[in-house]
Nucleic acid binder design. Structure first.
Length: 423
RNA sequence: GGCUCCAUCGUCUAGAGGCCUAGGACACCAGGUUCUCAACCUGGCGACACCGGUUCGAAUCCGGUUGGAGCUACCA
């Protein structure tokens, strides 16, 4: 019989940011690696900080990343249970009432020790811990009490949570002790730091899963990146699917020190997923889903030309826009070639039989001008690309012109020449 | 302040006493390739915080120093 059971226990005080979701990920990876259960527990015991819709947002964040839970429990619905256990502690006389709340009486002179999954032996003296509230005067339990009761009640085997809980752990240990319960294995994860090396927080600009998705990151990238923050696989592979991560995950390879969230690498990783891991058909679907107003057949047609140029889903419309839009903005300063050379190119294109307007003929015509005029190939192609697209990043030039069509190509070249001359 | 945790390239990290004149990745720089850009390939830059031990031998073990972080709520 399998007894591995973990829980992700967020408070519905807002949309969770990625640092928070990373805790969910590690819980999930461990549970699935051990073929155990992953529980979602909503810790809504702080009535003042409750944010409407936050619970839904937590669930949506998890679902968006495919982190599916096996069970869900909500603390505010378990008040009787906490009451029942409080009564037991009253009988044991280890709690006392204090202005409508119930405090746990800390017995001095104890050494509270546990073997942490990542830190090894950690210990605190009970003398430095003050009597702490376990049931607030509004009748709701505090985190310390609710989490211990729930973890025991739902038979949680491993508690994966952020490092910031280390100093609260002795309190939890004392509660376990007074009930005579066995504590789960605590696995304190290093907290993710922002670029300022401070704990990642909303205030410091930590983003939510939704924000990253909105920016064109793939769920796979978010998972992949988060997994590698504070944990490393055995080999040198860096791109992992959720399934692969599940297979590779182990507590032993979790780091002790806090990683900094490195956006550059995140973007790079998204590119890797787009260039190498996703099937073209899949990518087309995703682009189409994100930009429903784009023509799916066109995406299918253009994507192979630009796939390697995308580092986010959102790059697709940016880079292919010029092929379908009627008007573009051309900045003549970005066109290297002078107007008279552009005229030469235009004239060469003009004589191509419209029926033979394809990349081979366009390529030959271009090469011919380059040769006769003694132009630089790089500058010429760059100029043509900028003239017809308005951008310095384009699909392969000849393909671009072919897709654009002869008429539009000549129009845009004309416009570029005009602007270049005016200048 | 007290308590606790942490400490390898700018960043993510490998490293569990000799394999380390410290490996990989991102970023950066240079070259190559290509139809511009991108992608790709090759090379370069770049770190064991410091000081003492232990040991034949330390990035790895121990102690201290310094630095950083967290907690110190009827928040989680």
């Amino acid at each position: 019989m399998n007894k591995i059971k973990v829980r992700y226990a967020p408070s519905p005080t807002g949309i969770p940011h990625v640092g928070n979701i990373r805790t969910a990920l590690f819980n999930y990876l461990f549970a699935k690696n051990k073929k155990g259960k992953f529980i979602l527990r909503i810790e809504d015991t702080d009535r003042k900080r409750l944010v409407p819709q936050a619970e839904e947002k937590i669930e949506e964040s998890l679902k968006a990343l495919n982190l599916n839970w096996d069970e869900k429990i909500i603390q505010s619905q378990r008040l009787e249970i906490y009451k029942k256990y409080l009564d037991q502690l009253k009988e044991k006389k280890v709690v006392y009432e204090d202005e409508g709340s119930w405090r746990f009486k800390v017995e001095k002179g104890q050494e509270l020790t546990w073997s942490d999954g990542v830190h090894g032996a950690v210990s605190f003296k009970s003398d430095v811990i003050e009597d702490f509230v376990i049931i607030k005067s509004d009748g709701f339990p505090t985190y310390h009490f609710a989490s211990v009761v729930d973890d025991h009640d739902t038979q949680i085997s491993h508690v994966f949570r952020g490092d910031e809980w280390i100093s609260s752990t002795p309190k939890h240990l004392m509660i376990y002790q007074s009930f005579g319960w066995q504590a789960p294995v605590f696995v304190h994860l290093p907290v993710i730091l922002g670029a300022d090396k401070k704990k990642l927080s909303k205030r410091e600009g930590a983003k939510t899963v939704f924000e990253y998705l909105e920016e064109g990151l793939l769920p796979e990238t978010i998972i992949n990146f988060l997994a590698l923050l504070g944990w490393s696989p055995e080999g040198e592979q860096e791109i992992f699917s959720l399934e692969e991560l599940v297979k590779e995950f182990s507590i032993e390879r979790i780091n002790k020190n806090s990683p900094v969230f490195n956006v550059d690498k995140l973007i790079w990783m998204n590119g890797q997923w787009i260039h190498k891991r996703l099937e073209v058909g899949d990518l087309v679907e995703r682009i189409n889903k994100k930009f429903p107003n784009l023509n799916k057949k066109e995406i299918l047609e253009y994507l192979p030309l630009v796939r390697d140029r995308l580092s986010s889903i959102d790059d697709y419309p940016k880079i292919t826009n010029f092929l379908t839009s009627e008007k573009i903005n051309i900045d003549p300063n970005k066109i290297i070639l002078p107007a008279d050379k552009l005229v030469k190119i235009k004239n060469e294109y003009k004589v191509i039989d419209p029926l033979k307007w394809d990349k081979t003929f366009i390529g030959n015509a271009t090469a011919s001008v380059i040769q006769h005029e003694g132009l630089s190939k790089g500058e010429t192609l760059s100029s043509i690309g900028t003239a017809v697209s308005g951008s310095t990043v384009t699909p392969p030039i000849y393909d671009s012109l072919e897709k654009l069509g002869k008429e539009k190509t000549l129009e845009r070249l004309d416009e570029a020449i005009r602007k270049k001359t005016q200048k």
